[in-house]
Lab assay of single mutants.
Amino acid sequence: IDVRFTVNGLDVTVRVRTEEIAERVKELAKNGVDWREIQRIAEELNK
């Protein structure tokens, strides 16, 4: 599942395995978490 969001004007796409992880990623993006941090968290959750 590809999750797309915009952080500080940057369009970011993170690929995740499940809808649940996708929701977590969207939540982080909404809360203004840095995209590199979101990427790292997504990689952890995908394991």
Rank of each mutant, 00 (worst) to 15 (best):
E37P: 01
E44T: 07
R36M: 13
I38S: 00
D34Q: 09
F5M: 11
I1D: 02
E19M: 14
D11V: 15
E43A: 11
E19T: 11
E27M: 13
G32V: 06
V14C: 05
A29H: 13
G9L: 03
E37M: 09
R15F: 12
R36K: 13
V25Q: 00
I21T: 03
W35M: 10
R17M: 15
N8V: 04
L45A: 05
T6G: 04
L10W: 08
A42S: 06
N8I: 03
D34K: 09
I41G: 01
T18L: 03
Q39H: 06
V14K: 00
V3D: 01
A42M: 06
E27D: 09
E44C: 10
I41R: 05
W35F: 14
L10T: 13
R24F: 11
F5T: 03
R17G: 07
W35V: 14
W35T: 05
R24G: 02
N31K: 13
R24D: 02
I41A: 05
G32F: 07
I41L: 07
E44I: 10
V14Y: 06
D2A: 10
K26C: 07
K47Q: 14
V16F: 03
W35G: 05
R40T: 07
W35Q: 04
D11C: 11
T13F: 11
L45T: 02
G32S: 06
E43M: 11
E19P: 14
E43D: 14
K26F: 10
R15N: 13
A42K: 01
R24M: 13
A42D: 00
E23C: 06
V14F: 11
N8Y: 05
N8P: 03
T13I: 15
A22P: 00
V3Q: 01
I1L: 10
G32W: 04
K26N: 06
G32R: 07
D2Y: 15
E44L: 09
N8F: 04
E23P: 00
V14L: 14
L28R: 01
I38Y: 02
I1P: 02
E20D: 11
V33Y: 09
N31D: 12
L28T: 01
G9D: 06
R36P: 14
I21D: 07
R4N: 12
N31C: 12
F5I: 15
K47A: 15
E44G: 05
E37N: 07
L28P: 00
D2E: 15
E23L: 13
R40W: 07
V7A: 09
E43L: 09
L10V: 15
K30G: 08
F5W: 09
V33R: 06
D34N: 11
F5G: 02
V16G: 01
E27L: 13
R4S: 11
V12D: 01
R36I: 14
L28C: 04
I38K: 00
V12E: 03
T18N: 14
L45I: 03
G32P: 02
R24Q: 11
E27R: 08
E44W: 10
V25S: 00
E27W: 14
V3T: 02
D34Y: 10
E20F: 12
V25M: 06
D34F: 10
D2C: 13
I41T: 05
A22R: 05
R40S: 08
K26A: 08
L28N: 01
T13C: 07
R15D: 02
L28H: 04
A42C: 05
D11Y: 11
D2M: 13
G9H: 04
A22F: 05
D34I: 07
A29F: 15
N8H: 08
D11K: 10
R40P: 01
G9C: 05
R24Y: 13
I38E: 00
R40E: 07
I1A: 03
E23T: 12
R17E: 09
R4P: 04
N46M: 03
L28M: 13
L10A: 09
E37Q: 09
V33S: 05
V25T: 01
V25L: 15
V25K: 00
R36H: 13
E20W: 15
D11E: 15
E19R: 13
V25D: 00
R17Q: 11
V25N: 00
L28K: 01
R15S: 09
E37D: 10
V7Q: 15
E44A: 08
I41Q: 06
V3R: 01
I21S: 03
Q39T: 11
E27T: 11
G9Y: 03
A22N: 01
A42T: 06
K47N: 14
T18S: 10
D2F: 15
V16R: 00
V14W: 05
N8M: 09
D11S: 13
D34A: 11
A29W: 15
D11R: 11
R36A: 14
T6E: 09
K47W: 12
Q39E: 09
K26D: 02
L28Y: 07
W35D: 02
E43N: 10
G32E: 06
K47D: 11
V14D: 00
L45S: 04
E37A: 08
A42N: 01
V25C: 04
L45Q: 03
V33H: 07
E27V: 10
